[in-house]
């Protein structure tokens, strides 16, 4: 059962689309598992001025992508890196246990996009995979499972 907030973000996802000439793009997940998220960042003076996403996946995958973009829009890049999957889950008023994986993918997508921005600009970074304690995916998503 999805919360009303998950259903709201699924049926009216925020920030769907692409950004031309984005400053950072990150893609995580795998079609074999059934979910792929791609996140685009526009960054100005270390502030995320715009963010867009495209997601192939279930209701929770769309809702967590949408919520993650909301949570990092207007924030500094450093703050965006602090986004956790737990924060996404809380902001959505919870997720069914089998969908926790989707929130981890959303966190991963943000981190991958920031890493791309850092790498393009020659900024050293040690962005790590957050790891996932989910029990609901096939393991091909590229996310480290704890």
């Amino acid at each position: 059962m999805y919360s009303d907030k998950v259903m709201d973000h699924f049926s009216n996802p925020r920030n769907v689309g692409e950004i031309e000439n984005a400053d950072g793009v990150g893609e995580v997940g795998n079609a074999k598992c059934g979910d792929i998220m791609r996140m685009y960042l526009k960054i100005d003076n270390d502030i995320i001025t715009d963010v867009k996403f495209k997601t192939f996946g279930c209701g929770a995958a769309v809702a967590t992508s949408s919520m993650a973009t909301e949570l990092i829009k207007g924030k500094s890049v450093k703050d965006a890196l602090k986004l956790t999957n737990k924060a996404v889950i809380e902001a959505l008023d919870g997720l069914p246990p089998v969908k926790v994986h989707c929130s981890v993918l959303a966190e991963e997508a943000v981190k991958a996009a920031v890493k791309d921005y850092y790498d393009r600009n020659g900024i050293e970074n040690d962005i790590e995979s957050p790891g996932c304690s989910c029990t609901s995916c096939c393991g091909d998503c590229g996310v480290e499972h704890k």
């Binding site: 699924f10 049926s11 598992c33 059934g34 996946g57 279930c58 995958a61 995916c137």
Partner: peptide
């Protein structure tokens, strides 16, 4: 997500996706 969107349009269906 297809099933959820169909439901929002009043159609009850099902899927064989992992989700």
């Amino acid at each position: 997500s297809l099933i959820l969107l169909l439901d929002l349009n009043g159609i009850c269906a099902s899927s064989g996706s992992a989700c």
